[in-house]
Design a protein around this nucleic acid. Sequence first.
DNA 1: TATATTTAAATTGTGCACAATTTAATTTTA
DNA 2: TAAAATTAAATTGTGCACAATTTAAATATA
Lengths: 142, 142
Amino acid sequence: MNSFNPDALKLENQLCFPLYAASKEVVRKYRPYLDALDLTYTQYIAMMVLWEEKSINVKALGARLFLDSGTLTPMLKSMEAKGLITRTRSKADERVVVATITQKGEELKKAAKAVPLKMAGCISLNSEEALQLYTLLYKILE
Amino acid sequence: MNSFNPDALKLENQLCFPLYAASKEVVRKYRPYLDALDLTYTQYIAMMVLWEEKSINVKALGARLFLDSGTLTPMLKSMEAKGLITRTRSKADERVVVATITQKGEELKKAAKAVPLKMAGCISLNSEEALQLYTLLYKILE
DNA sequence: TATATTTAAATTGTGCACAATTTAATTTTA
DNA sequence: TAAAATTAAATTGTGCACAATTTAAATATA
Protein backbone atom coordinates (compact mmCIF):
# COMPACT_ATOMS: atom_id res chain seq x y z
CA MET A 1 0.00 0.00 0.00
CA ASN A 2 1.45 3.25 -1.06
CA SER A 3 -1.29 5.84 -0.56
CA PHE A 4 -2.18 7.39 2.79
CA ASN A 5 -5.37 8.65 4.29
CA PRO A 6 -5.31 12.38 3.51
CA ASP A 7 -7.03 13.13 6.85
CA ALA A 8 -4.61 11.10 8.92
CA LEU A 9 -2.74 14.24 9.98
CA LYS A 10 -5.82 16.21 11.05
CA LEU A 11 -5.80 17.07 14.74
CA GLU A 12 -9.41 15.96 15.13
CA ASN A 13 -8.52 12.47 13.92
CA GLN A 14 -5.81 11.90 16.49
CA LEU A 15 -6.32 9.76 19.57
CA CYS A 16 -3.13 11.08 21.16
CA PHE A 17 -4.34 14.66 21.27
CA PRO A 18 -7.49 14.29 23.42
CA LEU A 19 -5.46 11.96 25.63
CA TYR A 20 -2.76 14.60 26.06
CA ALA A 21 -5.24 17.45 26.49
CA ALA A 22 -7.60 15.62 28.87
CA SER A 23 -4.70 14.54 31.04
CA LYS A 24 -3.51 18.12 31.39
CA GLU A 25 -7.02 19.44 32.03
CA VAL A 26 -7.65 16.88 34.76
CA VAL A 27 -4.30 17.59 36.45
CA ARG A 28 -5.10 21.31 36.22
CA LYS A 29 -8.43 20.74 37.95
CA TYR A 30 -6.62 19.04 40.83
CA ARG A 31 -4.48 22.11 41.43
CA PRO A 32 -6.72 24.09 43.83
CA TYR A 33 -7.38 21.01 45.98
CA LEU A 34 -3.72 20.00 46.02
CA ASP A 35 -2.51 23.56 46.62
CA ALA A 36 -4.50 23.42 49.85
CA LEU A 37 -2.44 20.35 50.83
CA ASP A 38 0.82 21.95 49.62
CA LEU A 39 1.26 19.07 47.15
CA THR A 40 1.92 19.04 43.43
CA TYR A 41 0.09 16.42 41.38
CA THR A 42 3.22 14.27 41.09
CA GLN A 43 3.76 14.47 44.84
CA TYR A 44 0.11 13.52 45.37
CA ILE A 45 0.38 10.28 43.39
CA ALA A 46 3.65 9.51 45.20
CA MET A 47 1.88 10.06 48.52
CA MET A 48 -0.88 7.65 47.44
CA VAL A 49 1.77 4.95 47.01
CA LEU A 50 3.34 5.85 50.36
CA TRP A 51 0.02 5.89 52.25
CA GLU A 52 -0.42 2.34 51.02
CA GLU A 53 3.16 0.98 51.22
CA LYS A 54 4.64 3.14 54.02
CA SER A 55 8.09 2.55 52.53
CA ILE A 56 9.36 2.07 48.97
CA ASN A 57 12.62 2.47 47.08
CA VAL A 58 13.10 4.92 44.21
CA LYS A 59 13.17 2.29 41.48
CA ALA A 60 9.99 0.57 42.65
CA LEU A 61 8.24 3.92 43.05
CA GLY A 62 9.33 4.84 39.54
CA ALA A 63 7.89 1.60 38.18
CA ARG A 64 4.56 2.33 39.90
CA LEU A 65 4.39 5.94 38.71
CA PHE A 66 6.08 5.60 35.27
CA LEU A 67 8.73 8.11 36.38
CA ASP A 68 12.53 7.94 36.43
CA SER A 69 15.12 9.09 38.96
CA GLY A 70 15.56 12.36 37.08
CA THR A 71 12.04 13.28 38.09
CA LEU A 72 11.85 11.44 41.41
CA THR A 73 15.13 12.47 43.03
CA PRO A 74 14.36 16.20 43.21
CA MET A 75 10.70 15.54 44.03
CA LEU A 76 11.53 13.20 46.92
CA LYS A 77 14.10 15.70 48.23
CA SER A 78 11.41 18.37 48.26
CA MET A 79 8.99 16.01 50.02
CA GLU A 80 11.69 15.25 52.56
CA ALA A 81 12.26 18.99 53.08
CA LYS A 82 8.53 19.34 53.82
CA GLY A 83 8.77 16.54 56.40
CA LEU A 84 6.44 14.14 54.56
CA ILE A 85 9.04 11.39 54.09
CA THR A 86 12.54 10.36 55.06
CA ARG A 87 15.15 9.19 52.54
CA THR A 88 17.66 6.57 53.65
CA ARG A 89 20.19 4.36 51.87
CA SER A 90 19.44 0.66 52.19
CA LYS A 91 21.89 -1.16 54.51
CA ALA A 92 21.67 -4.30 52.37
CA ASP A 93 22.40 -2.45 49.11
CA GLU A 94 23.94 0.99 49.35
CA ARG A 95 22.80 1.87 45.84
CA VAL A 96 19.16 1.80 46.89
CA VAL A 97 17.41 4.81 48.42
CA VAL A 98 14.26 4.09 50.41
CA ALA A 99 11.54 6.69 50.93
CA THR A 100 9.54 6.16 54.14
CA ILE A 101 6.44 8.06 55.16
CA THR A 102 6.63 10.14 58.35
CA GLN A 103 3.94 10.83 60.95
CA LYS A 104 3.34 14.17 59.24
CA GLY A 105 2.95 12.35 55.92
CA GLU A 106 0.45 9.96 57.49
CA GLU A 107 -1.52 12.85 58.92
CA LEU A 108 -1.79 14.54 55.54
CA LYS A 109 -3.98 11.63 54.48
CA LYS A 110 -6.85 12.93 56.62
CA ALA A 111 -6.89 16.20 54.71
CA ALA A 112 -6.51 14.38 51.39
CA LYS A 113 -9.49 12.07 51.92
CA ALA A 114 -11.94 14.58 50.49
CA VAL A 115 -10.01 15.12 47.25
CA PRO A 116 -11.19 12.11 45.17
CA LEU A 117 -14.86 12.92 45.71
CA LYS A 118 -14.33 16.58 44.87
CA MET A 119 -12.47 15.58 41.70
CA ALA A 120 -15.15 13.09 40.67
CA GLY A 121 -17.52 16.05 40.57
CA CYS A 122 -15.18 17.83 38.12
CA ILE A 123 -15.13 15.03 35.55
CA SER A 124 -18.19 14.82 33.34
CA LEU A 125 -18.39 11.02 33.14
CA ASN A 126 -20.83 8.71 34.89
CA SER A 127 -19.47 5.72 36.77
CA GLU A 128 -19.95 3.34 33.85
CA GLU A 129 -18.09 5.61 31.47
CA ALA A 130 -15.35 6.16 34.05
CA LEU A 131 -14.85 2.41 34.38
CA GLN A 132 -14.78 2.04 30.60
CA LEU A 133 -12.17 4.77 30.32
CA TYR A 134 -10.14 3.26 33.16
CA THR A 135 -10.09 -0.12 31.41
CA LEU A 136 -9.06 1.33 28.05
CA LEU A 137 -6.27 3.42 29.58
CA TYR A 138 -4.78 0.44 31.40
CA LYS A 139 -4.91 -1.47 28.12
CA ILE A 140 -2.57 1.18 26.71
CA LEU A 141 -0.29 1.00 29.74
CA GLU A 142 0.22 -2.77 29.63
CA MET B 1 -22.80 11.38 54.57
CA ASN B 2 -19.76 11.77 56.69
CA SER B 3 -17.68 8.62 56.11
CA PHE B 4 -15.37 8.11 53.15
CA ASN B 5 -14.39 5.13 51.10
CA PRO B 6 -11.15 3.94 52.73
CA ASP B 7 -9.80 2.89 49.30
CA ALA B 8 -10.55 6.22 47.65
CA LEU B 9 -6.91 7.29 47.97
CA LYS B 10 -5.40 4.13 46.48
CA LEU B 11 -3.49 4.76 43.29
CA GLU B 12 -5.16 1.81 41.57
CA ASN B 13 -8.58 3.36 42.17
CA GLN B 14 -7.76 6.64 40.47
CA LEU B 15 -8.93 7.50 36.99
CA CYS B 16 -6.56 10.46 36.79
CA PHE B 17 -3.46 8.34 37.14
CA PRO B 18 -3.81 6.03 34.11
CA LEU B 19 -4.89 9.09 32.15
CA TYR B 20 -1.75 10.94 33.18
CA ALA B 21 0.52 7.92 32.69
CA ALA B 22 -0.96 6.82 29.36
CA SER B 23 -0.70 10.32 27.98
CA LYS B 24 2.99 10.49 28.84
CA GLU B 25 3.67 7.00 27.50
CA VAL B 26 1.99 7.78 24.19
CA VAL B 27 3.85 11.07 23.80
CA ARG B 28 7.08 9.23 24.66
CA LYS B 29 6.38 6.70 21.92
CA TYR B 30 6.05 9.52 19.39
CA ARG B 31 9.53 10.78 20.21
CA PRO B 32 11.63 8.69 17.79
CA TYR B 33 9.29 9.44 14.88
CA LEU B 34 9.12 13.14 15.71
CA ASP B 35 12.87 13.40 16.35
CA ALA B 36 13.30 12.32 12.74
CA LEU B 37 11.19 15.35 11.74
CA ASP B 38 12.99 17.64 14.23
CA LEU B 39 9.65 18.30 15.96
CA THR B 40 8.63 18.06 19.58
CA TYR B 41 5.18 16.64 20.31
CA THR B 42 3.76 20.10 21.02
CA GLN B 43 5.21 21.40 17.76
CA TYR B 44 3.72 18.40 15.95
CA ILE B 45 0.16 19.13 17.11
CA ALA B 46 0.69 22.79 16.25
CA MET B 47 1.84 21.75 12.76
CA MET B 48 -1.30 19.64 12.37
CA VAL B 49 -3.40 22.77 12.93
CA LEU B 50 -1.19 24.74 10.52
CA TRP B 51 -1.30 22.07 7.79
CA GLU B 52 -5.06 22.41 7.96
CA GLU B 53 -5.50 26.16 8.55
CA LYS B 54 -2.34 27.57 6.91
CA SER B 55 -2.60 30.62 9.17
CA ILE B 56 -3.86 31.12 12.72
CA ASN B 57 -3.38 33.60 15.56
CA VAL B 58 -1.89 32.68 18.92
CA LYS B 59 -5.13 32.88 20.85
CA ALA B 60 -7.05 30.67 18.41
CA LEU B 61 -4.19 28.19 18.30
CA GLY B 62 -4.16 28.12 22.09
CA ALA B 63 -7.89 27.41 22.15
CA ARG B 64 -7.40 24.49 19.73
CA LEU B 65 -4.45 23.00 21.63
CA PHE B 66 -5.44 23.90 25.23
CA LEU B 67 -2.22 25.89 25.60
CA ASP B 68 -1.57 29.49 26.65
CA SER B 69 0.80 32.16 25.36
CA GLY B 70 3.36 31.22 28.00
CA THR B 71 3.78 27.89 26.21
CA LEU B 72 3.04 29.02 22.67
CA THR B 73 5.18 32.15 22.40
CA PRO B 74 8.56 30.39 22.86
CA MET B 75 7.41 27.36 20.86
CA LEU B 76 6.30 29.49 17.89
CA LYS B 77 9.56 31.45 18.04
CA SER B 78 11.49 28.20 17.83
CA MET B 79 9.33 27.02 14.91
CA GLU B 80 9.96 30.34 13.20
CA ALA B 81 13.71 29.92 13.79
CA LYS B 82 13.48 26.52 12.05
CA GLY B 83 11.71 28.13 9.10
CA LEU B 84 8.43 26.24 9.51
CA ILE B 85 6.28 29.32 10.10
CA THR B 86 6.36 33.10 10.01
CA ARG B 87 5.06 35.27 12.86
CA THR B 88 3.51 38.60 11.95
CA ARG B 89 1.47 41.18 13.82
CA SER B 90 -2.02 41.61 12.45
CA LYS B 91 -2.49 44.93 10.61
CA ALA B 92 -6.09 45.16 11.75
CA ASP B 93 -5.22 44.57 15.43
CA GLU B 94 -1.63 45.07 16.48
CA ARG B 95 -2.13 42.95 19.61
CA VAL B 96 -2.66 39.83 17.53
CA VAL B 97 0.21 37.67 16.30
CA VAL B 98 -0.50 35.42 13.36
CA ALA B 99 1.48 32.26 12.65
CA THR B 100 1.55 31.29 8.98
CA ILE B 101 2.97 28.09 7.55
CA THR B 102 5.92 28.42 5.14
CA GLN B 103 6.79 26.32 2.10
CA LYS B 104 9.24 24.40 4.26
CA GLY B 105 6.48 23.81 6.80
CA GLU B 106 4.20 22.53 4.04
CA GLU B 107 6.88 20.20 2.79
CA LEU B 108 7.38 18.69 6.23
CA LYS B 109 3.89 17.24 5.87
CA LYS B 110 5.14 14.71 3.33
CA ALA B 111 7.59 13.27 5.84
CA ALA B 112 4.98 13.38 8.60
CA LYS B 113 2.38 11.40 6.66
CA ALA B 114 3.75 8.07 7.83
CA VAL B 115 3.66 8.97 11.53
CA PRO B 116 -0.01 8.25 12.39
CA LEU B 117 0.14 4.73 10.96
CA LYS B 118 3.40 3.97 12.78
CA MET B 119 1.91 5.28 16.01
CA ALA B 120 -1.29 3.25 15.58
CA GLY B 121 0.94 0.19 15.64
CA CYS B 122 2.32 1.29 19.02
CA ILE B 123 -1.05 1.53 20.76
CA SER B 124 -2.55 -1.76 21.84
CA LEU B 125 -6.18 -0.91 21.07
CA ASN B 126 -8.30 -2.13 18.18
CA SER B 127 -10.24 0.44 16.17
CA GLU B 128 -13.44 -0.02 18.15
CA GLU B 129 -11.65 0.51 21.45
CA ALA B 130 -9.80 3.50 20.03
CA LEU B 131 -13.08 5.11 19.00
CA GLN B 132 -14.56 4.40 22.42
CA LEU B 133 -11.55 5.99 24.11
CA TYR B 134 -11.67 8.97 21.75
CA THR B 135 -15.33 9.57 22.60
CA LEU B 136 -14.78 9.34 26.36
CA LEU B 137 -11.79 11.69 26.26
CA TYR B 138 -13.70 14.36 24.33
CA LYS B 139 -16.50 14.02 26.89
CA ILE B 140 -13.97 15.10 29.52
CA LEU B 141 -12.74 17.98 27.36
CA GLU B 142 -16.19 19.50 26.75
C1' DT C 1 -12.93 62.44 23.52
C1' DA C 2 -10.27 61.51 27.74
C1' DT C 3 -10.28 57.75 30.99
C1' DA C 4 -11.18 53.13 32.33
C1' DT C 5 -11.62 48.50 31.05
C1' DT C 6 -10.65 44.70 28.40
C1' DT C 7 -7.90 41.98 25.47
C1' DA C 8 -3.65 39.58 23.20
C1' DA C 9 1.02 38.38 23.67
C1' DA C 10 5.04 38.37 26.01
C1' DT C 11 7.64 37.80 30.16
C1' DT C 12 8.92 35.78 34.58
C1' DG C 13 9.39 32.13 37.68
C1' DT C 14 8.53 27.33 39.30
C1' DG C 15 8.11 22.50 38.70
C1' DC C 16 7.86 18.72 36.20
C1' DA C 17 9.47 15.07 32.43
C1' DC C 18 12.90 12.73 30.24
C1' DA C 19 17.16 11.64 27.58
C1' DA C 20 21.91 11.12 28.39
C1' DT C 21 25.71 10.90 31.34
C1' DT C 22 28.05 10.13 35.72
C1' DT C 23 29.03 7.95 40.09
C1' DA C 24 29.19 4.38 43.13
C1' DA C 25 27.85 -0.14 44.56
C1' DT C 26 26.92 -4.89 43.42
C1' DT C 27 27.03 -8.95 40.67
C1' DT C 28 29.02 -11.79 36.84
C1' DT C 29 32.37 -14.13 34.69
C1' DA C 30 36.97 -15.06 32.96
C1' DT D 1 39.35 -13.15 42.97
C1' DA D 2 40.36 -9.35 39.76
C1' DA D 3 38.20 -7.23 35.78
C1' DA D 4 34.00 -6.48 33.31
C1' DA D 5 29.27 -5.79 33.25
C1' DT D 6 25.20 -4.41 35.42
C1' DT D 7 22.39 -1.77 38.40
C1' DA D 8 20.40 2.31 41.26
C1' DA D 9 20.44 7.09 41.99
C1' DA D 10 22.00 11.37 41.05
C1' DT D 11 23.26 14.91 37.89
C1' DT D 12 22.99 17.75 33.72
C1' DG D 13 20.63 19.94 30.16
C1' DT D 14 16.47 20.92 27.31
C1' DG D 15 11.71 21.75 26.62
C1' DC D 16 7.35 22.00 27.99
C1' DA D 17 3.21 23.71 31.07
C1' DC D 18 1.10 27.02 33.58
C1' DA D 19 0.19 30.69 37.07
C1' DA D 20 0.94 35.46 37.63
C1' DT D 21 2.41 39.73 36.01
C1' DT D 22 3.53 43.14 32.50
C1' DT D 23 3.08 45.69 28.21
C1' DA D 24 0.75 47.58 24.61
C1' DA D 25 -3.27 47.98 21.80
C1' DA D 26 -8.20 48.22 21.21
C1' DT D 27 -12.76 48.99 22.97
C1' DA D 28 -16.20 50.79 26.16
C1' DT D 29 -18.02 54.38 28.83
C1' DA D 30 -18.39 58.60 31.61
